[in-house]
Design a protein around this nucleic acid. Structure first.
Lengths: 267, 267
DNA sequence: CCCTTTACCGTATGACGTACGACAATGAAG
DNA sequence: CTTCATTGTCGTACGTCATACGGTAAAGGG
């Protein structure tokens, strides 16, 4: 299960870290001992640990050990673990390298949305620990903003009302993120436990024999006998993801074609 | 962030707990000391703690204390914390009380899907700690099976291919669950931090003044000035959820009307 | 050289899950 | 009624975590 991390700290301090103190107030202090570490080195080390062994591995102890310094030294650079996590998240969000306003991008809004989806999915698969962190009230760093900017730009100018634009971006993001997180979880479990999801199912044949009640689950039986489960779990998940994304975008397309129906168009 | 819990233990033992040892092998032992607790009392106590204070509160220490027994006593009833969590999850899944095969249900598949969505959403809001637990490789208990059965039944018989039925159910579930989890997270954060998401944003006005780059984020600026953000965060989230669900179901409707297009129809 | 400023980090605290093993209760067997 | 295998209870111990506190080391200005 999940431990909380977000929302607590001083907003000014957090923002200064996320944006690496752009602006005038950045000058290094003239007196005092020189720092041996940098914020970037800490974030990089934490990312490496989390990527390799899951988010639990990115503990303050272990990150410090990796850098050859004492645990408490990290607290000179970062107010708490929560802020380090925010920095890690924003770092990988930025890594998606989504097209910025002037940059070339695919033709057509659907292709543009799919680029967002693919990059986001790849991000989750590269950094499976992402699925373990909460994204509500996200740290307002460069990566978050770049993602929002790009996604909003793909669904703007389609004839949707402003509030529909926000709703479309938000629901697409929810769908894409949920599926990416699920794929990442599957991959992470296969690596951690050393067994694929298919062999996991194989080990549970007892369930079908001993506990599954055919009478109470006619639809499951039906779909099973009709061949609905004939592909591997991973394939089925990918198929379901593509299917849902297509349907969601179809639905938006239909709404555009109609000339803006719906109840969210009143703003 | 999230700690792992699932997939490790002995499948036989876990299933026996989830289904409360239906079948012949259930008889109480003839010799030995009598148990003072029951599995149900433990699950209930853990649920009460998690509901009230979040999933972290449902520690073995605290659950045992609540029941007036020693921590290690719990391990007589449950092999590990992971299994207790599985039991908690399946319990609240069952609480949705979705219509079973013979039961009355709304007319029309869309209304039936919406019932699933509403019950699931209510479940997450009643038990916000759910968002912190992983649902991949779920414990195969009664609640999981009842949910799958109902959702599959709503999208069966619409003319979709078996694999499309699975894909539709899976993508609807992903969408609904993601949004329910997000709503639960918002509610949980408001309760835990004592500030609404709107006042959270208010405290971050510094961000817009000091860090937000208007040049790099024209779409965000546009949507903002066009009034796309004029509702409260909670309202916007609810609106986005409804919008996306409508579009997803519209997309499925369109596919049905067409007479089964798409690439997932080949099975 | 001193002294203020800054960075480093050892130790301690109170949480967590759970392995281990001593102990207590129970009822069948003698 | 006693014995004893069986089963349930739970105190202690270990290694983990984040981080508060306070002492110490380095660096530059005066």
């Amino acid at each position: 299960m999940t431990m909380e991390h977000s929302g607590g700290g001083d907003p000014d301090r957090s923002l200064a870290l996320l944006w690496r103190e752009r602006g005038p107030a950045a000058a290094a202090p003239a007196r005092g001992r020189k720092p041996t570490l940098t914020l970037d080195r800490i974030v990089t080390a934490a990312l490496a640990l989390a990527d390799a062994e899951g988010s639990a591995a990115a503990s303050m102890h272990r990150v410090a050990k990796e850098l050859g310094s004492g645990t408490m030294t990290l607290y000179t650079y970062v107010p708490a673990k929560a802020e380090l996590l925010d920095l890690m998240i924003d770092e990988v969000l930025t890594e998606r390298a989504l097209p910025a306003p002037g940059d070339p991008r695919p033709d057509g809004w659907r292709a543009q949305v799919r680029l967002y989806a693919e990059r986001t999915r790849a991000m989750f698969l590269r950094h499976p620990w992402l699925r373990q962190v909460s994204m509500v009230r996200p740290a307002l760093g460069p990566g978050v903003m770049a993602g929002q900017e790009y996604l909003l730009s793909t669904v703007s100018g389609l004839g949707l009302s402003p509030r529909q634009v926000v709703a479309a971006a938000s629901s697409i993001d929810a769908y894409v993120t949920a599926n990416a997180a699920s794929a990442a979880a599957g991959q992470q479990l296969e690596q951690a436990t050393g067994e694929t999801t298919d062999t996991w199912w194989d080990q549970r044949t007892v369930f079908w024999e001993k506990y599954f009640d055919v009478e109470r689950h006619p639809s499951i039986v039906r779909v099973w006998t009709d061949g609905g489960y004939e592909v591997s779990t991973a394939e089925a998940a990918a198929e379901a993801y593509e299917f849902g994304l297509d349907r969601l975008l179809d639905g938006i397309d239909a709404l555009i074609g109609t000339g803006r129906g719906g109840g969210t168009g009143k703003a």
